[in-house]
Design a binder for these strands. Structure first.
Lengths: 178, 178
DNA sequence: GTGCAGTGATTGCTACAGCAAAGATTGCAC
DNA sequence: GTGCAATCTTTGCTGTAGCAATCACTGCAC
C-alpha cells in the first residue's frame, strides 16, 4: 500500500494554494472584515449596529427621508425579512417610523425621524474619519484613490449589477447610484 | 406642529452624505457582500459554507495539515468559540479530525483528512475561476492588478496588523477597541 | 508540594439573519 | 364581478456566531 499521510499532495495540488487570486481574495476578506469590526465598535457608541447604520443612511440620503421596505432591502444587502426586523428595532428606539402608503395598501414606508437624523449627524463625522483613516488614506498612500474607486466600481458592476441600477419607484433617481 | 419632514436638513448635513469616502466604502461593501454570496452559492454545491472553506483552506495550506484551534481562530476572523463549532461540523462530515497534542494537553489540533483534501481539490478550481471572473478580472480591466493588491494590502496592514504577522507570538499589550 | 496566575478549548445564553410559508392587497383577464 | 397570478410585508423556524463563564491544564513562585 502507499503511504497515505504524505503521499497525495502533488505539485499541482499545492500550486493551487499559491495562486495569487487567493491572496487578493484573502487580503480583501481580512481588510473588509476588520473594517466592519472597527466601524461596528464605533457605531456601538451611538447605540446602533452596522446594518442599522446602513438602513438609516439610506433613509437619510433619500430625498423624502422614506423608502419602501422592498427598496431598502435592495439597497442594503439585507433580505426583506431582515429589513422588517431591523426597522422593528429602529422603530422601538424612535429612530424611524412606519408609514402606510396612500395609493397601495400593500406597501409600507420606513421614515427616518428627527431623532434618527440627529443620530446620523452625530455618528457620521466619526464614521467618515474612520473610513479615511483605515481605507481611503492607506489606499491613497499606495496609489491613486480614483483608480481604486474605478476598480472597485468595476467589480461591483460585475458582481452586483442590480445594486448599480437606481432605486425603482416614484422618486426621481437622479444620478447613477453609487 | 413644526414641519417635521423637510425642515432640518441644512447644507452641511446633506454634504456629509455626498462624501466620496462614503461612496468608496459603499462600493466595497456591496462588492464584497455580493462576492461572498457568489462564493457561498458555489461552495454550497460542495456542501460547505464560506467559513468552513476558510478553515479547510488554512489547514490545507499548513505544512502538516494541522493547526491549533487558537491559531485557526487567529487566521480566520472567527472567534475561538466559532472555531470550536465549525470544526465540530467538519468533523461530523469527516473532513477534519481532532488530535490531541502530545506535549500540552490543553491544546487540540484540527487536522484535515484525506477526504477534506479531496474536497478542497474539487472545490478550489471553481473558486479560483469565480475569483478571476468577478474580482481579479474586472480589477485588471480597470487598472493594474498589482497596484490593487498593494493598495488592499496597505489597508489590511493598517486595519488588521495582527493578520499580517505570523500567527505566533505574544499579543502586543493590547487595548482592543479604540 | 501547594497555590496561583495565565492559557486553551468548550459551553450556555443570546442576538441576529436567511429561507420558506403565510397573509394581505393589487391588477388583469374574462 | 370573479378568479387568479403577482407583489409586498411579516412571521415561524432554523442555523450560526459572539460574549462571557467554565473547565482543564501549564508554568511559576514559594
Amino acid at each position: 500500500m502507499t503511504d497515505q499521510a504524505t503521499q497525495p499532495r502533488e505539485a499541482s495540488f499545492d500550486a493551487l494554494f499559491a495562486d495569487g487570486r487567493l491572496t487578493v481574495m484573502g487580503l480583501l476578506a481580512e481588510s473588509f472584515h476588520a473594517l466592519l469590526a472597527k466601524a461596528g465598535a464605533q457605531l456601538a457608541e451611538h447605540g446602533i449596529s452596522v446594518v442599522e447604520f446602513e438602513v438609516l443612511i439610506r433613509l437619510a440620503r433619500s430625498p423624502l427621508g422614506l423608502l419602501r421596505m422592498t427598496d431598502l432591502s435592495a439597497q442594503t444587502s439585507v433580505t426583506t425579512s431582515g429589513v422588517t426586523r431591523v426597522v422593528d428595532r429602529l422603530q422601538e428606539r424612535g429612530l424611524v417610523c412606519r408609514q402606510a402608503c396612500a395609493t397601495d395598501r400593500r406597501t409600507t414606508y420606513a421614515v427616518i425621524t428627527e431623532s434618527g437624523r440627529e443620530l446620523m449627524a452625530a455618528a457620521l463625522p466619526g464614521h467618515l474619519e474612520l473610513v479615511e483613516t483605515y481605507l481611503t488614506g492607506p489606499v491613497g498612500e499606495a496609489g491613486d484613490l480614483e483608480t481604486f474607486t474605478a476598480m472597485i466600481r468595476r467589480v461591483r458592476d460585475g458582481v452586483a449589477p442590480d445594486a448599480a441600477a437606481g432605486s425603482t419607484g416614484p422618486l426621481p433617481a437622479s444620478r447613477s447610484a453609487d
